[in-house]
Simulated assay, not measured.
Amino acid sequence: MSTKSELQALLRFLSQDAKVPLPTAMGKVKELQKANLTGADSLAKSDLPTVQAIFIDEKLAKQVLNAAKRVTKKRTSGEVKPESPAKRKKVSSMKDMLSPSAIEDSLVLPETNVDEEELRSTTIHTNRAPLVLAFAVTLLKYTMPSQPLSSRLSLAQAVVSMNSRTKAVSLGIEKGNSAEDDGWGQGQPKIRVMGRDIRVMKRWGYEWKGKPEEDRVKQEDSQPGDSQDTLKQEDESRDEPALWGLDLEALRSSNGPLVSGAQGANVSGLPIYNAQSARAYLLKSFASPTPSTEKISLKKKSTAAMKSEEERNLALLLHALDLLYASWAHILGREELDRRAWAWYVAVRPEVEHGVAGWGGKGEVKLAQILDLRRNG
Rank of each mutant, 00 (worst) to 15 (best):
K87H: 14
L371F: 03
S285M: 05
K307I: 08
S237D: 06
E104P: 06
S5T: 14
I56F: 10
A347T: 05
R340H: 11
V132Q: 07
L270I: 04
K211F: 10
E31T: 11
S151H: 02
V160N: 01
D182C: 11
N66A: 15
K59F: 12
V51S: 03
P241K: 06
L318D: 00
R70P: 03
V267W: 01
E220R: 14
S151E: 01
P271W: 00
K81E: 11
A326H: 07
S106Y: 00
S277P: 02
G185C: 09
M97K: 15
V114Y: 00
G205Y: 01
T138C: 10
V20Y: 00
R238C: 12
Q188C: 13
T24P: 03
L14N: 03
T3C: 13
I124E: 01
D229I: 12
V193Q: 01
E240F: 12
L37W: 00
A278E: 02
K81F: 08
G256Y: 00
L14F: 06
Q233S: 14
S146Y: 04
N255T: 07
N127C: 11
S154E: 02
S2Q: 15
S288Q: 06
P21W: 01
K299Q: 12
V108P: 04
E207P: 07
K211C: 10
P212A: 15
P49T: 09
R216Q: 13
K90I: 13
V267I: 11
Y345P: 01
P189T: 06
S101D: 10
S15Y: 05
D96V: 14
I54Q: 01
I272A: 04
V365W: 01
L133C: 08
K74N: 12
L48H: 06
Q52P: 04
K73N: 11
Q263V: 13
Q63D: 03
A341R: 03
A168T: 02
L109E: 02
T123H: 05
D221H: 11
R279M: 12
N376P: 07
S151M: 08
V356D: 07
N36I: 10
A61F: 00
D372N: 09
K28F: 06
T126R: 01
G377S: 12
E309K: 08
L107H: 04
P224N: 09
L11P: 01
R120L: 13
F55C: 09
